[in-house]
Amino acid sequence: MAQSIFEKNGGKYIKVGDYYVPDLGQFDEDTEPVDERVIGKYGSLRRTFLEEHRPAIYTKLLYSFELDTHLKDVNEEAQNLIDKLLPQYKKQQGVTEELKAQNQLLWVGKVNNIIAQIEEIIYREIVYV
């Protein structure tokens, strides 16, 4: 069988499933793990804040390739705070499943109010600092 130009230049093929593909290192087990977290709402808000109000920090994070990780950390921290505070606030304010069954509109209003309170904390403590 004739060699391809890729093979003549020292390239190798590997079998992936039923196909042979050029071995460019994309299937190596030793590669660095990819951070699959999302930047999300709070990370995006943080990025905008840094660009507009903290350009030095934004530039430093961008050029050190740490910006995406920082934004993902911000989003994760905010989500963790929501997960922690939402049940506590619901309990404090008497927002129960029983209330949901009796008066859904009231329940939704109270939950939205609680989420707004938590988001104010997130903005003040995490995003806009």
Results as ranks from 00 to 15, higher is better:
residue 15 K to Y: 09
residue 123 Y to Q: 04
residue 109 G to Y: 11
residue 47 R to W: 01
residue 117 Q to S: 12
residue 110 K to E: 09
residue 46 R to I: 01
residue 71 L to H: 07
residue 41 K to T: 14
residue 63 Y to F: 07
residue 46 R to C: 01
residue 102 Q to F: 03
residue 41 K to I: 15
residue 52 E to H: 07
residue 103 N to K: 10
residue 119 E to N: 10
residue 89 Y to H: 14
residue 82 I to W: 05
residue 99 L to Q: 06
residue 62 L to I: 03
residue 123 Y to G: 00
residue 1 M to D: 10
residue 100 K to N: 07
residue 111 V to R: 04
residue 88 Q to D: 11
residue 72 K to C: 08
residue 31 T to D: 01
residue 116 A to T: 13
residue 123 Y to D: 02
residue 81 L to Q: 11
residue 69 T to P: 02
residue 12 K to D: 00
residue 96 T to S: 13
residue 63 Y to T: 10
residue 86 L to E: 08
residue 100 K to E: 10
residue 28 D to V: 02
residue 78 A to N: 09
residue 46 R to W: 01
residue 77 E to R: 15
residue 56 A to D: 13
residue 120 E to V: 11
residue 125 E to S: 09
residue 18 D to W: 11
residue 54 R to L: 10
residue 61 L to S: 03
residue 63 Y to H: 09
residue 36 E to T: 13
residue 122 I to S: 02
residue 107 W to M: 08
residue 33 P to C: 06
residue 125 E to G: 04
residue 24 L to K: 00
residue 26 Q to N: 08
residue 121 I to Q: 07
residue 99 L to H: 08
residue 2 A to M: 12
residue 84 K to G: 02
residue 129 V to R: 14
residue 44 S to G: 11
residue 60 K to V: 03
residue 28 D to H: 03
residue 125 E to R: 10
residue 9 N to M: 11
residue 58 Y to N: 02
residue 72 K to P: 03
residue 93 Q to G: 02
residue 61 L to Q: 05
residue 10 G to E: 08
residue 57 I to A: 06
residue 53 H to N: 12
residue 126 I to M: 08
residue 50 L to N: 00
residue 13 Y to C: 00
residue 7 E to Q: 08
residue 88 Q to N: 10
residue 30 D to N: 15
residue 57 I to P: 00
residue 62 L to Q: 07
residue 89 Y to P: 03
residue 6 F to S: 00
residue 1 M to A: 13
residue 75 N to H: 15
residue 110 K to M: 14
residue 57 I to M: 06
